[in-house]
Amino acid sequence: MWRYLLRRLAQSVAVVFGVLLLVFLIMQLTGDPAALMLPPDSPGADIERARIMYGLDRPLYVQFVRFLVGDIATGGGAGRTVRTFASGGGWLEVPIKPRKGVIRGDFGESLRYREQPALAVVIERFPRSLELMVAAFLYAVVLSLVFGLVCALRQGSLLDQAVRILAILGQSVPSFWLGLLLIIVFSVWLGWLPAMGSGTWWHLVMPAVTLGSLSLARNTRLVRSGMLDALGEDYVRTARAKGLTERLVVAKHALKNIAIPLVTLWGLDIGALFGGAVITESIFAWPGTGRLVIESVTRRDFPVVQAAVFFIALVFVLVNLVVDLIYGWLDPRVRLGR
């Protein structure tokens, strides 16, 4: 088990490093990250100044090292100023922004919230996202287990047919449209639920349903088909033959055997929730990390975009690590690497 754990840990560290490289490289896609930091029509002199200020005039690998570990490894730079030609003639003193590196949580300062570290802006918003994701996850998991089980045990019944059709339909409804639909019906027409914002439990209902419905539909189908498969297995027949109650057969023999695909699916769900949260939070003006990403993209606050993308990927990697460990715990074949 320890070897498996260590191997997975090493793998996760490698992935996080790759994520950082990708987050760094995305900024280079336009060829001029300095121009991205400023309003679209900034004069050349301003761009030049930003380039020096953020150290973007140095070779790419130096920039990446600086991005990772800050100024120590690249021979300081903090507090120094660089003299450069000003476009209007004469000299210009440009102070270089010090960097501590992402290793110490420094993604630079937010351009929108001046003087605030980008990562702090992201982390401040995260609890609200977590609240929404947990609610959506519970909604999806609990209901899918109930629906899936009932359908498998009453295969072919009217309820089974109805749930199956709803599940297929649910997999085809994009979350953002479901969100709009819910707002139109429950806020605009009926006036039962608040359309925007957060604060009370009532605010949580529509965003959680919007975010969780895709997972609910997918999980319901998997629980149903998984249970049907399991109930047809020999070990279930044996369990019945030896006189166990149906409840025990279902709970102890059938359900336990769909635990592995279920845990896998829940891991996938969490990934989908992170992606879906970006959209759901935007629709409902939910003040979480997802909405922050969109706000930062539209206001060109790239340090925050980088920090947010990294942070979400990091949490996602950690969740996957936990899922895989649970996996190893549930299935000995995995942890022994056979």
């Binding site: 994520v19 336009t30 992606g275 879906g276 790239f302 993308v309 979400i312 990697v317």
Partner: peptide, 16 residues
């Protein structure tokens, strides 16, 4: 795979 698909797309669109 460490990125939610839509997030990666948003990050790239944001830049390019």
């Amino acid at each position: 795979l460490a990125f939610p698909f839509i997030l990666l797309a948003i990050a790239v669109v944001a830049v390019v």
